[in-house]
Design a protein around this nucleic acid. Sequence first.
DNA 1: CTGAAAGCGCTAACAC
DNA 2: GTGTTAGCGCTTTCAG
Lengths: 361, 361
Amino acid sequence: MSRAVGRGGGSAVSRSADVAQLAGVSRKTVSRVFNDEPYVSADVRRRVLEAAEELDYRRNNAARALASGRTRSIGVVTLGTAGYGVASLLVGIERAVRDAGYALRVVSTLEGEPAGIARAVDSLLDQGVDGIVVSEPVDDGEVPVRVDVPVLFLGAPPVFDVPRMVTAGVGADVLARAATDHLLDLGHTTVHHLAGPQRWYAARDRLKGWQTALGARGRSQPPVIEGDWSAASGYAAGRELASDTSVTAVFAAGDDMAIGLIHALVQAGRRVPEDVSVVGFDDNPVFAYVTPPLTTARQPFDAAAKEGLRLLVHAIEKPDVDLPPASPPPVELVLRSSTAPPPGLKRGKRGDLAAPPAPKP
Amino acid sequence: MSRAVGRGGGSAVSRSADVAQLAGVSRKTVSRVFNDEPYVSADVRRRVLEAAEELDYRRNNAARALASGRTRSIGVVTLGTAGYGVASLLVGIERAVRDAGYALRVVSTLEGEPAGIARAVDSLLDQGVDGIVVSEPVDDGEVPVRVDVPVLFLGAPPVFDVPRMVTAGVGADVLARAATDHLLDLGHTTVHHLAGPQRWYAARDRLKGWQTALGARGRSQPPVIEGDWSAASGYAAGRELASDTSVTAVFAAGDDMAIGLIHALVQAGRRVPEDVSVVGFDDNPVFAYVTPPLTTARQPFDAAAKEGLRLLVHAIEKPDVDLPPASPPPVELVLRSSTAPPPGLKRGKRGDLAAPPAPKP
DNA sequence: CTGAAAGCGCTAACAC
DNA sequence: GTGTTAGCGCTTTCAG
């Protein structure tokens, strides 16, 4: 029908045989040159490359995959939302996959729920991939898929059984603990938590870090409010919290929720940070420019993606060798102006409205 | 080496021959069933499906692609940033591609500059795709690639020559004009523009809409300030503009820039919207919860992606038939509280802080 | 409605 | 260092 690779048509695309003929070598030699295999004389290599250039030759990937049994591609299951965290992770994964010499196939699910993940994984398997990345999944319920390629669970422990699996975290619990500790260090008696949906591992992990920080100092653990990551849910939580003047510090599990929360608090007449301190989670750079600039825990998206991919590629290419140890992700708290000592205490100065940092786009 | 599709190994995966044998038919019949071809009796179809189920059969995509000359995949060139607009468009594309029955391959470039796009397109061509989507490119300079598959330029006119190309816009100029008109309608004498980098088509398109609106009413055209889409650049622009009290209305080409701009304005003692009105562009839902909630032009990402893919798939599958006409994208201005009549005029009421809309995550 | 034969373009194994 | 020989698993073409 179309030109490209029609069966009999006067196909314009050249094959390795054409290159071989023009260069006066065998097809296998052409293959050697393109695969950077050793044992090809410099002269032959040059001739082949020239011939290929002239013919505008390009290896046929389908044929390569069929003959070698490897597709040289990695599939990722991601969330079909444009949120900053999800998007950042995807960007990191794309770069890491490309750097590793693989192509990236993407399938998204509306929600990270098991059935959706199963469908997505299945479609990736249909497409043919050498490995799969499952990004930030929900982990309740069963994921009934038979997978025979390595799977990387990014930002969460495995959600289903796979013969060969690897994991890489973003260190959310450590980050959450650091965020909570920061508030406690400021002098707050306790810290409230605006959590993400508890079906999500990522949300539970942050909750755990918060609990750990509180527990380590023997502080009371106020009831948790659960949002859905959206600013709207943060706003709703803020309306609840605003009437309780014993609330002086809140750790929100996401930046957007923190923004909604602050909005509600301020509307209700509670000043941030003078009356209530708020810490977010993610570090979307735009929130350095809202009022007040948001103190937040920066998730090491790129580092996690890079580390995870190192492990996944290892599992794909050297299934027999033991996996190299994982390096722990960096912990970074970005201090701005949404946190301060509680009302009673003398206020320390930190992060000043007059000169917010200037994050790159 | 690994199991899966090893050459001689006791491979666990079944092929169409296995299914054919178990079902007592030929391989071609198995192929017919899986391709939903007509002329297969219901009985045979059922038997084949059962056999396939039992053997956990899954078509080998590489073999399919090799034999048919079609990869059934579409590649997208996107920006390697986590911005709301870019991410939204990618999400829309992913869904549209999947709905069309294709697999999605993604390659990102740091900047949308021609050389990067050329590299990305080339890598997609290497991978083998039936069509390419170039999302929001920069369009200065040459993109020296020979492409022989249809290419969809999304959000911009073609940036390089392709035999078969299609385009779909987001209607940025119309949206920009609506945003500017809104400010003019409010009574502002003129409207300043905080533009995106003019190397970007998307930025120039918005500028054009702003000019059109101004021109239609014979208003003066204040000098344009150029940002780089980031909140930081909007902040810098705001510091410049703040000292000029003749500035009462600004249309920013992106939400993040609008946020930075407002921050600088407020810091300099100019109230928003009482002294200066600001309109953004994109409609990231979180900005309904900052102070003041941002009035903004919503980009029809999903509609554009869907429409663009309809055209692309048509170009792939029916190259001979004329392209169906494009339907224009919807224009939607989201009115919130960052805009008001200029200082001198009586203030109209609109968009109230007490009850911002509750966007879904 | 169904089947037989012939490749798609490449890499793997082995010979030279 | 380089070439030869076989397939990889599917779809296509053409017979029945």
